[in-house]
């Protein structure tokens, strides 16, 4: 079935709401407006205001409510408009959701799912465009997902809800309109492994989320130059799938990490470090990285494009690694 990432996500929400009466969706404008990115369009009409709830503009309050509801036996799905705004709920997520299982001596789980958009590319400027998922990937007690394909958009929500602990799903804003094929018998996907999106022998390109389409395009361009790149989609940013990374780099001996976040202290730094730790004696070139320019994401289109990792940047970094 041909569908979009947005529709796949909506189908997953619809199924979750239909399958389990404990599941409800809440967030800013998710009901009457249909969601800021139209993901939940029509769900209010279908499931009613008890199950699809518009909230006040207070991330701390409604995420906190979600934590409480989860502890009390519900299965809340909380939508935060962008990862930038999630900083207003950082206390609830990092100090409460992520810690309560441990601080209660295992008495309370927090089966909460938080969805938020991340990333730039749509001229929404610095306060709506950053890629801060690496911050959440830093925190024990959270599972962090980054669906990069239509299939993962459709299939990741169910296992996230089934997880007894908090899960954050990052949806890159530039992916919503992306089309892809979905098998007719959609089923939950597994969350424990990175995916090899393209096999190759000459180097490994590691990426996730919104950068995956760019990296696949770069791999095509490299192939035309005789360089066969293997493309790994991390899918789960915490915990990272070390085995898939190590197996690939041990074969290709070269790696470039592509991440829309900033390089300094970023997720790409973590991935590069793990590759160096696990594959040092297999490396034939330094691990390369491609990230966003270390500036707040600009508004102007040409400047935004210049600040973000582009296909040419990935190609150049890959060619340097294999030179």
């Amino acid at each position: 079935m041909r569908t979009t990432y947005r529709d796949a996500m909506r189908a997953a929400l619809r199924q979750a709401l239909a399958d389990d009466p404990r599941v409800f969706l809440m967030g800013e404008d998710v009901g009457r407006y249909g969601g800021c990115f139209a993901v939940s369009l029509g769900l209010l009409e279908e499931f009613g205001p008890e199950r699809v709830r518009d909230t006040p503009l207070s991330e701390s309050a409604f995420v906190g409510a979600g934590v409480g509801a989860a502890m009390a036996g519900m299965r809340p799905i909380v939508e935060i408009m962008t990862v930038n705004f999630s900083l207003l709920a950082l206390d609830q997520i990092v100090n409460n959701a992520a810690t309560i299982l441990h601080m209660s001596g295992g008495q309370f789980n927090v089966p909460l799912v938080i969805r938020m958009t991340t990333g730039a590319g749509r001229q929404l400027a610095a306060q709506h465009s950053h890629s801060l998922e690496g911050w959440y990937a830093h925190v024990p007690g959270l599972r962090v997902l980054a669906p990069a394909t239509v299939e993962d958009a459709r299939g990741m929500l169910a296992p996230a809800l089934a997880d007894p602990d908090p899960v954050i799903i990052f949806e890159h804003g530039s992916l919503y309109a992306m089309e892809g094929d979905l098998p007719d018998d959609t089923r939950p996907v597994e969350l424990d492994h990175a995916a090899v999106r393209r096999p190759g022998r000459d180097l490994t390109l590691v990426t996730y989320g919104g950068c995956l389409p760019k990296v696949l395009a770069a791999a095509d361009a490299l192939s035309a130059e005789g360089v066969e790149a293997e493309v790994i989609d991390l899918r789960t940013l915490r915990p990272l799938d070390d085995d898939t990374l190590a197996e690939s780099v041990a074969r290709t001996h070269r790696a470039v990490v592509v991440d829309e976040g900033w390089r300094t202290g970023g997720l790409s730094a973590e991935v590069a470090a793990r590759i160096s730790e696990q594959c040092f004696w297999d490396l034939d070139a330094p691990v390369g990285r491609v990230g966003s320019a270390e500036v707040p994401i600009p508004y102007a289109k040409h400047m935004e494009e210049a600040a973000l990792p582009q296909v040419d940047d990935v190609v150049a970094a890959a060619l340097e690694a294999v030179s």
């Binding site: 330094p286 390369g288 990285r289 966003s292 270390e294 500036v295 340097e320």
Partner: peptide, 9 residues
């Protein structure tokens, strides 16, 4: 060092 530092720096 590799000269692939971000453009503004």
């Amino acid at each position: 060092p590799p000269s692939r530092s971000p453009a503004p720096s």
